[in-house]
Amino acid sequence: MDALQVITYTGVFVFAVTGVLKARTKRFDIFGAAVLAFVTAYGGGTIRDLLIGIRPVNWVNDNLAIFIVLASTIVTFFFKMNTNIIKKVIFLIDAFGIGLFTIVGIQVALRSGISSGYALVMGIITATFGGLLADVLCNKVPSILKPGELYATACLIGGSLYLLFLNYDFQSDVSMLIGILVIASIRIFAIRKKLQLPRI
């Protein structure tokens, strides 16, 4: 198992947990939580694969990935926390999750022969569209559209930095780690300092 697969499965677990925690705030049953976990973990990657023509999409025939989603659902379902703690945990997990999936999306796109600019777009889609679909299913305004979130912006900055490192042949594993940490840090800092892009 190479570094990209490790990051991919870590991201799947992180986003699946985020999905289950979101389901808990809406008082879903365990089946609904599993569906939301799957959508959160695989929604962005599925859209990416469809856009760049990967067949079958990433989760088809991947038994380990399905097991990770189910295991995260069961573990999180029995791990009880109060609502305020859940919200904080969702935020922290999601911050690192979008970092993980941005790098994964970029790597998958580059390996499929996509140019760097569009690979960055694919990374942002991979990181954000699963959460977007999950928020829609929960009847919430998606975080990517809310002011003061810097959700996709964090992915854009960290992903661009990662591509810059690749262009200068910086060590791959270190580049991935730096990209992930930059994305998570920007996301956390933006929320704590209430930073936001100019409004229309």
Rank of each mutant, 00 (worst) to 15 (best):
D2S: 14
Q5K: 15
V6R: 06
T8I: 07
Y9P: 10
Y9K: 02
Y9I: 03
V14N: 06
F15W: 14
F15S: 05
T18S: 11
V20L: 09
K22N: 12
A23K: 04
R24L: 13
K26F: 14
R27E: 07
F28H: 12
D29W: 03
A33F: 02
V35W: 12
F38G: 12
G43W: 06
I47A: 04
I47H: 02
R48P: 08
L50N: 10
L50M: 15
L51V: 07
L51M: 12
L51R: 07
I52H: 03
G53K: 08
G53T: 11
N61K: 14
D62K: 10
N63W: 15
A65H: 06
I68K: 06
V69A: 13
L70W: 02
A71K: 01
S72C: 12
S72D: 04
T73P: 03
T83H: 13
T83P: 13
T83W: 15
N84Y: 08
N84L: 15
I85G: 08
I86F: 06
I90S: 00
F91C: 02
G99S: 06
L100K: 06
T102S: 13
I103D: 04
V104H: 11
V104W: 01
I106R: 05
R111A: 09
S112L: 00
S116H: 14
S116F: 15
Y118L: 13
L120W: 03
G123M: 13
I124P: 02
A127Y: 03
A127F: 03
L132H: 01
L133F: 04
D135A: 08
D135C: 08
C138S: 08
K140E: 15
K140N: 15
V141K: 13
V141Q: 12
P142T: 00
P142Q: 09
I144G: 12
P147F: 00
L150V: 11
A152L: 05
A154K: 12
C155K: 03
I157D: 01
I157M: 11
G158S: 13
G159S: 06
L161M: 11
L164N: 11
F165Q: 10
F165S: 08
N167Q: 10
D169G: 04
F170D: 10
S172E: 14
D173M: 15
S175R: 10
G179K: 14
L181H: 05
V182T: 05
I183K: 09
I183P: 07
I183F: 08
I183S: 01
I183E: 12
A184Y: 01
S185R: 04
I188S: 00
A190T: 07
A190D: 03
K193P: 04
K194T: 06
K194F: 08
K194A: 14
L195I: 11
